[in-house]
Design a protein around this nucleic acid. Structure first.
Lengths: 188, 188
DNA sequence: GGCAACATTTTACAAATGTTAAAAAATGAA
DNA sequence: TTCATTTTTTAACATTTGTAAAATGTTGCC
């Protein structure tokens, strides 16, 4: 595993020694398009890093399904509430393509956090990067209209436009599919 | 400082030894209501823990000011982008009451993160808790109407209703002040 | 190809929220 | 208290977005 992790962006800041410790508890897994990797309301015992493919996180409402996260190659992928509070999650994670993932058992990861300073700080930075990205999205919702958020999405995630259903992008942007269609029609 | 930090919720998980190290770089400061503690577009060199009083974070738009965070006693308070990326922030933080705060220089905090395993994990958990709270808000925006978000706010932050201007609460909830007034009128 | 299933767009109408302006209420300082 | 300032509410109207349903487009499979 060591030589495989070396090439993944998120592991690059780590020393060889830390990487070896992570490699010892990492396993590569492959899953097909359509797989629900993580189910809401379950305590999910694994943490993943997406090596190739794309995924989305969504929650089910009464008569709607809201996608609130997309992950591409290099993304970390885990049930927030399992990872953070050891409780059942609120998100499902679906693979939108065949995916290759690095899988780490949470108990192994937590044990490394408690033993290894460098890995603890690596985990801290993962949470911090997710945090700042999430808050940016919350603020963008306030300052930018739906059309601008769509344009930003086009600019920043061209890869996703090709392979993600527009209904998922619509809910990610915080509008209905009808509104997104109108935005797209006006845009031409 | 040690005996003062001991009574603050966020420090309670820490061992005496870790707490002493943090106490050595902590300083208590007092600021008056109305103080802008953190300015957007500046690299902010301090991290704060709010001991008493309340604060809000906001960003300035062209013709509006959006409040996207409130802090009460026990909250951590820092410029996200300074803390995380050593870059200029996007938020101003204003004290809405006279406040007592614990102040820690970021360089001191980072140096402890790099030296002390327990403190590194403490910092990791701070980021994780902020992350899960922020994502919850993003998801609530999708699933709940403005009226329900207002009710949740009343239930969860009764302390804030008394002392925060409704215009700030309106933008925090993602609606205009006029809409919030309508919600309140309908609620009676 | 042709069918079935699913995704996307379009249309018409309804509901929610925004905008602007003014009135009413609350607040704070002299 | 009184006056000036600020905050909050209300009103009328405009705009955006949502809902439901039909029309069109796309995909994959036999």
């Amino acid at each position: 595993m060591y030589s495989q992790l070396k090439n993944i962006e998120i592991f690059k800041p780590l020393s060889n020694e830390a990487l070896e410790k992570l490699a010892a508890v990492s396993k590569r897994v492959e899953h097909q398009k359509g797989t629900i990797l993580i189910y809401a309301d379950k305590i999910e015992p694994y943490f993943y890093i997406l090596e190739s493919g794309i995924a989305r996180a969504y929650s089910d409402g009464e008569n709607q399904q809201i996608t609130f996260w997309f992950g591409q190659s290099g993304a970390v992928l885990f049930s927030f509430n399992s990872y953070i509070n050891n409780g059942p999650g609120y998100e499902n994670i679906e693979l939108l393509e065949n995916c290759s993932l690095i899988q780490i058992r949470l108990t192994d990861l937590f044990s490394l956090y408690d033993q290894h300073l460098e890995i603890a700080n690596w985990g801290r930075k993962i949470a911090e990067q997710e945090l700042i990205a999430t808050e940016r999205r919350l603020i963008d919702r306030a300052f930018k209209g739906a059309a601008e958020r769509y344009q930003d999405f086009l600019d920043q995630s061209p890869r996703l436009i090709k392979s993600v259903a527009l209904k998922h992008i619509a809910s990610y942007l915080g509008v209905t599919q009808v509104t997104l269609s109108r935005i797209r029609a006006a845009h031409k």
